[in-house]
Design a protein around this nucleic acid. Structure first.
Lengths: 128, 128
DNA sequence: GAAGAAGTGCAGTATATTCTGCATATAAGC
DNA sequence: GCTTATATGCAGAATATACTGCACTTCTTC
């Protein structure tokens, strides 16, 4: 069901932040102690699922994301919306506001952004 | 790690929406075909984890949520924020806007809400 | 009180996910 | 070429999650 398992996601997070790395490097950045071989079994699975790609440099492989963080985010958000917010982004916002996840400061900032007070990169090329 | 597994969450969603139910009822509402005994094994686990409670009526048990949808939402959102949005709600909003999850209409609605144009139930009783 | 319908308890199987150990390979230094 | 350090490949163990089957109980109807 889920796009990534817990362990796979831990690996992807590191690759999304740090870019191309070899297993030993990922291992260092890992959020908990993990054996090199355990980590590599995640990489093997991610490679099979084509969520990462790799290239050989010298004797080692360097891995990098093949799935963008953005699309993983969309996927995860979609599932969160369907479970808790009636499936809509608007529902999420209502939820956020009612549950006070948004502080007054954030609401103001939000208002500023909504008003167009910030450069919204893709604002022009709307519609997917 | 996760608060709920996939199957457990499917059960909780139904209980959050429909309130107190017995297994046969949950089974009917289930998003996919599932055997009564498989469903009940989820309920047993949820009972152990104290995410649901039950009371006997006649020969049957009626189950209801013991964990609020709201707190499960917070938990899930927290994990999403940490993975994708630098841990902040504000980061989520920027993400939403840049990724065009928010339509023009939603931005306007959002602005209206942010402006205080809607009755925001808990707006008064701020601070937890 | 026998029979059927609906419900429960639970031991155990199947699959997915996480992790281990070890044999082998590759590059660098001496 | 031999040694050491660093990598890799892979079979399979350990654990978590999902599911099955069946014996037994409770209520109802006749």
């Amino acid at each position: 069901m889920a796009e990534f398992t817990k362990g796979e996601l831990e690996v992807m997070r590191i690759l999304w932040v740090h870019g191309e790395m070899k297993p030993a490097g990922i291992q260092e950045k890992f959020p908990r102690r993990i054996k090199n071989s355990a980590l590599r079994s995640y990489l093997t699975i991610l490679l099979e699922k084509e969520h990462v790609s790799r290239r050989k440099v010298g004797k080692a492989y360097f891995y990098k994301p093949a799935t963008h963080q953005e699309s993983a985010f969309r996927h995860t958000l979609r599932s969160l919306l369907e479970t808790f917010c009636g499936g809509t982004t608007e529902g999420l916002l209502v939820h956020l506001i009612k549950s006070e996840k948004l502080s007054e400061k954030e609401l103001l900032e939000l208002k500023r952004v909504a008003d167009g007070g910030e450069s919204s990169p893709k604002a022009e090329e709307r519609r997917e």
